[in-house]
Write a protein that binds this DNA or RNA. Sequence first.
DNA 1: AGCACGCCGACT
DNA 2: GTCGGCGTGCTC
Length: 746
Amino acid sequence: MDGSEFRLVAEEPAAPARRVRVLLPLPFPEPYDYRVPDGMDLPDGAYVEVPLGPRRVFGVVWGDALPRDPDNTVPDAKLKPVARRFDLPPMPEVSRKFVDWVAAYTMSLPGNVLRMAISVSAALEEPRLLTAYRLGDDPIPPDFRLTPARRRILDLLADSPPRLPADLAEEAGCTPAVVRGLADAGILVPVPMRSLPRFAEPDHDRHGPTFSAEQQHAADSLRKRVEEGGYSCTLLDGVTGSGKTEVYFEAVAASLRAGKQALVLLPEIALSAQWLDRFEGRFGVRPAEWHSDLNGPTRRHTWRAIANGEARVVVGARSALFLPYPDLGCIVVDEEHETAFKQEDGVIYHARDMAVVRAHLGKIPIVLVSATPSLESLVNAEAGRYARIDLPARHGGATMPDVTLIDLRKPDAQPPARHWISPILKAALEETFAAGEQAMLFLNRRGYAPLTLCRACGHRLQCPHCTAWLVEHRLTKRLQCHHCGFTARTPESCESCGAEGSFVACGPGVERVAEEVVALFPDARTAMMTSDTLIGPRAIQEVVEKVKAREVDLLIGTQIMAKGHHFPLLTLVGVVDGDLGLAGGDLRAGERTFQLLHQVAGRAGRESRPGRVFIQTHMTEHPVMQALAAHDRDSFLAHEAEARQQMEMPPYGRMAALIVSGEDDRLVDQVALRLGRTAPRGRLELTILGPAPAPLAILRGRHRRRLLLKGPKNLPLQPVLADWLSQVEVPPQVRVQVDIDPYSFM
DNA sequence: AGCACGCCGACT
DNA sequence: GTCGGCGTGCTC
């Protein structure tokens, strides 16, 4: 047989395979190469499915990235073909650039950043058919047990279109099993549902509120920036109640008017029903919400609606920043000073800072909003990098509340032993109740007592996995670790000395203050607001409604009480322990405490009723307390800024932290010490601190050490860190995380 | 991240 | 004798 034809083909140099780089949402150092099948169109940003070892994964065509080592690319023979392309608009170039930028800045792997952008891999798939349920036509058989949960579900469906089991369960406060039970009994009838309802177009021309001259001016200025387009950053600085939200809604409206999307970032905790109501009041519809506890189908539906441009306005927690908006027109970061914008695990980043970067890359305006702006933003505004708009007045004529400091060192101000409410605060509460007004007691400490110890031997109950005391929660009758979720029953006897019933609670938590209040004011109707008692925005909203309906005289709670809720009849705020955040010596402690207490104080006396605030403290002379009492934010911040400047701390210098962690403390110490030895100490412009035990020396069973690197403001720290890290071998049991711009400077 | 392969304890 | 624990290593 004549094989010449075959030989001829074999000897011809094979045409190189068409290949694309595909970034996978996995912790790889770079994108992987794949072969492009004939006839498949794969532009940059295309969402694809590719084979990876024995499995198939989703990824994004990442054409621009070059291989790390161009001389040693993967040979054609090793290439696997792209399995399929999804029917979605490609990820926009700006989103891809953003992923690369954030990965480089935070020194994390691009795949880990990409994972935040495609959120849930199943988002790429066509939504499957959903099964909703409606009430059946037959009467309920008399022998069918109508439990309260079943009753609630039937009530919900009485006059509503068919609903999904997950939604029904969530709204009725039960598990989907209850819905399934009703369906199995034939009381609910399944209805196939094509998909979740579309996101309605917000009406930007609906009439907003009537603005004061100042508000109008602020709104006009923001609107103009959005209309002009291009990057700009504006700090909207306005006291609580100055109508900031309505003002920045005009920036959102301008973006919509230009046919573009808008993104509003809020700290998770502030994404309240009240905020959504205000949005609906202005735009007539609800925005697309993005936060951690969206259920699967809703998450996918929302992601797809954002990716294809159907969702016009997105309000979300920090992770919403990474979604692939095809045409974003402006970004708003509300409560920009909030520490909740700092993501501390996985990719460590500050959503406010990254939002500014995103705006820059997208050439769009961004608005940072706060009543107590971060020092970072104020310094940027002063340096002219940010524009600044002030909204000084409280809307509707309300005045700032009187702030009184209660000096707990003075004998006549001291509460009785094992009590936490000063006679002065008690008298103020009495007056408030007598006047038929409402009061709030704030203590940023969950549970009954922060520490439990044995009276006999002094043994303290500690978390087995963390360097933290176990917090007693009397409502759940359990001890809890607030860092890892460990819980345990309170032991009968001391595990150290065996004494029985010897445990004693030390210090106050909100539950203990509530107990004291009930004893002091048996007739007052009280309600608690903590993340333990109220799970989800709906539960919070219920309490808020009760307060508004005057069914509550006194609210006791932690910081979830302080965010965005408006209580018209509340005239007294008591801060049980104003010093709580100041302990520990962190340089940011003052700023943070001021922000929190200022926000809490702002709950008092809106709607033209004068408000009073009492802060219990052992440090009346502390600049934070003085600033709060004198309503003198600006000189306090100037003082803080000067202290930071002298120490060349952020925002006047740059910092990075290295966190070394692992289960084996000896190994962790070894790596930390090695990093300490190889630190770039020769460079005089750099300061290296540590290694020292990290703020939580043991967390979830992992030992943690920390090193800090400080340098001048204009010095890029990443190359220094990369060089430093490359010199130290890290065993796989130990992890070294880089935290650029750490929140705590300790 | 998964998922394989690979070497040492309690079981049908 | 096997089932299975999770330690290490690879995936274009």
